[in-house]
Design a protein around this nucleic acid. Structure first.
Lengths: 192, 192
DNA sequence: CATAAACTAACGACCGTTAGGAAGGTGAAT
DNA sequence: ATTCACCTTCCTAACGGTCGTTAGTTTATG
């Protein structure tokens, strides 16, 4: 029963080669089965891709939530800034994020609708989660400059996406360089 | 001599389908020639791709430079903020930026070295250009909080990349939403 | 007349997919 | 306890199609 490895393996291939560039033959070979055996578990490449996407989104949603639950009692700055450092340590999960960022920005043309139908709620959920975090913390800490928590959360999300994309492609050094450049400015702009 | 249209057409196809997903047949057909005729002008798909990339980088370099030359006399904030509005109006150039962002983040695996060898100097050049702009303007306006102009420029670049990526994929509405969220915070963090 | 730029035809390789069958396990009927 | 049917999971073989590429030839240009 090699089907269990199929999705994580497909995820890595889709992440680094894209939908069109990934080969079912290569994926099967890495799992240790032949290409047609994939069809015992998935109805085709589209099906495998969409199930892989659902898996990646679900895992990342849990994974990101776990961080912000763990750091619930920390100050907002520690929590927000610490996320970036935490993300490096959890770099075994980078393939999932690389996959998500890739298909979010450049989805396969023929699956564009299906992709956005799953991706948009994912980012909206994160956005709402962050906005709620901003609002709740500001109620106790009262440090934010503006009470437009939705915009604050969206700005944080933009910075996070930009730096994470840098990480998954250009590596840790470029990531930390961007981070030390952008974080102090962002935080100064956010607080009173 | 349909070769002149070949690069702009290839650019659009590479931008929206990626290297692996773009088809020489489709590109040739759109130009109005047959697929093998491409080989009268380029030695193969790799060659066409790399020449397309060189073209896109060169054009965008000129195009971006033209904006910051035009706005040389304006205040720094007007110049930096205005860039985002200008970028919308010049949306006919969006395919070039979409192409560049796509291959910068997710280059074709087999051409990774050649791509990064051209992409890194491109972004470094923009980064240096921005850092110089920050330094020169701060000498006359004296408004920036920090004299670390390199970091300031890199932070601006991160924000610009994040929002532009949003534009080329998710459209103008999402772009402006991000922009109005992130710009006030970024600028507050940047100035005294 | 020479050269560039297009064409047709075809190549081998790989693509995703399907058909059909072998091996193994499960569970009900004998 | 044994047999039988069934289902899952894998296999081999092969399909039609598209891919990038090459060879050889014709057309157009200058």
């Amino acid at each position: 029963m090699k089907a269990a490895q199929l999705i994580p393996t497909a995820l890595r291939h889709f992440a680094s080669h894209g939908y069109e560039g990934a080969s079912l033959n290569d994926i099967a070979q890495e799992v240790g089965i032949k290409k047609p055996s994939i069809y015992a578990h998935y109805s085709g490449k589209d099906d495998l891709f969409l199930k892989t996407m659902a898996y990646a989104l679900g895992e990342q949603k849990k994974h990101l939530a776990s961080y912000f639950v763990e750091t619930r009692q920390l100050p907002l700055e520690t929590s927000l800034k610490g996320f970036f450092d935490w993300f490096i340590e959890e770099s075994n999960q980078n393939d999932q994020m690389k996959f998500i960022l890739r298909i979010a920005y450049f989805p396969p043309v023929k699956l564009e609708h299906e992709v956005t139908a799953l991706i948009n709620p994912f980012f909206d959920s994160i956005h709402r989660h962050l906005a709620r975090l901003f609002r709740e913390r500001d109620r106790t800490e009262q440090i934010l400059y503006s009470d437009d928590y939705t915009s604050g959360a969206l700005a944080y999300l933009t910075v996070a996406e930009g730096t994470m994309t840098e990480l998954v492609y250009n590596g840790i050094d470029a990531y930390q360089q961007r981070l030390t450049a952008v974080w102090p400015i962002f935080w100064r702009g956010l607080v009173r």
